[in-house]
Design a protein around this nucleic acid. Sequence first.
DNA 1: TGATAATTGTTATGAACCATATCAAATATC
DNA 2: GATATTTGATATGGTTCATAACAATTATCA
Lengths: 173, 173
Amino acid sequence: MTVSKAAEKSSEKASNAAKGRKDAPEGLPEALQLGELSEQLGYVLKRAQLKVFENFLRCMASLQLTPAQFSVLLLVEKNPGRNQTEIASTLGILRPNFVAMLDNLESRDLCARIRSTNDRRSHILVLTDKGKAVLTRAKKLVATKHESRLNELLGQANREALLEMLSKIANEF
Amino acid sequence: MTVSKAAEKSSEKASNAAKGRKDAPEGLPEALQLGELSEQLGYVLKRAQLKVFENFLRCMASLQLTPAQFSVLLLVEKNPGRNQTEIASTLGILRPNFVAMLDNLESRDLCARIRSTNDRRSHILVLTDKGKAVLTRAKKLVATKHESRLNELLGQANREALLEMLSKIANEF
DNA sequence: TGATAATTGTTATGAACCATATCAAATATC
DNA sequence: GATATTTGATATGGTTCATAACAATTATCA
């Protein structure tokens, strides 16, 4: 009885429809069978990614940073003095779409565009003092509230193995 | 000289900018340092997911199936007789957005909406004969061209471990 | 029973994200 | 010095994702 929920209802639809009765006492809110779906790499990968981004946003709510914005700040901090094209392209962001992102970060005084003196077409990107401070706090939040959950969930060794496999896929698939 | 185009300019920016010279012969096409980014779960996960979807689309080019469409066909096959709300919600698709998806699949004669006789509000979903045939071919393509790459890349044991960890994240994060 | 509430598929609509073409200013090329 | 290329930017269109609202149907329950 408890196992047969899905059976009950889809057979209700199937059989009751044929017999025209609707008064059979009902079981539970039966879940669908995922079947082969749960073995599909893309499916599982996408759902995991959504969950992780969701959790990231919750952890960063106080700083109002999206994963993309966080990645920009990290990359600018690690590579000061690079221009928009360089930062955007290594993040896989198209130049036109990067403009609004920077407008946002700059309006919040987290990073700044500086006209380059030796190539006056390009804008050098740097973190402001506030940007550095916010990034420091962001890193702490990510480490303690976000990445730490991975360790709790998988254990240190598995966590590292997972990151390694994902990097391999990202680079060699 | 041929290799150094990109290098010329950006190290020119970093070092030459300070010294004010632009004539130094240049090194290599320097890539940016990813730094902590490559350890960020969300970043690596997203990039891996994009690569996997990209590969999926290439493998399915002959059948013109997106990952989302493939998942719908799989789920309908495994759970015949369910309505739109049930199929959409277990895939995380909002009902309004599911309408156009079904319009597409139905216009290609891959699945059909059947007015339920015991609840005339709802549409029962089923695969058409063509839908079943296409899904069979799709599964083969996915198995031989897509999922098989995972084994080549990671090995059977690691592949299973990866899927398990991703499922855990998707369900418990 | 009949009035009211809830559900189903649908449409309309807007936000967010992604991609292409194009432009002016600046620089590189030859 | 004429031509081509690069940079940041704008405009624009296409997807994807989310919410509100509606008609038809069914459930609820006084």
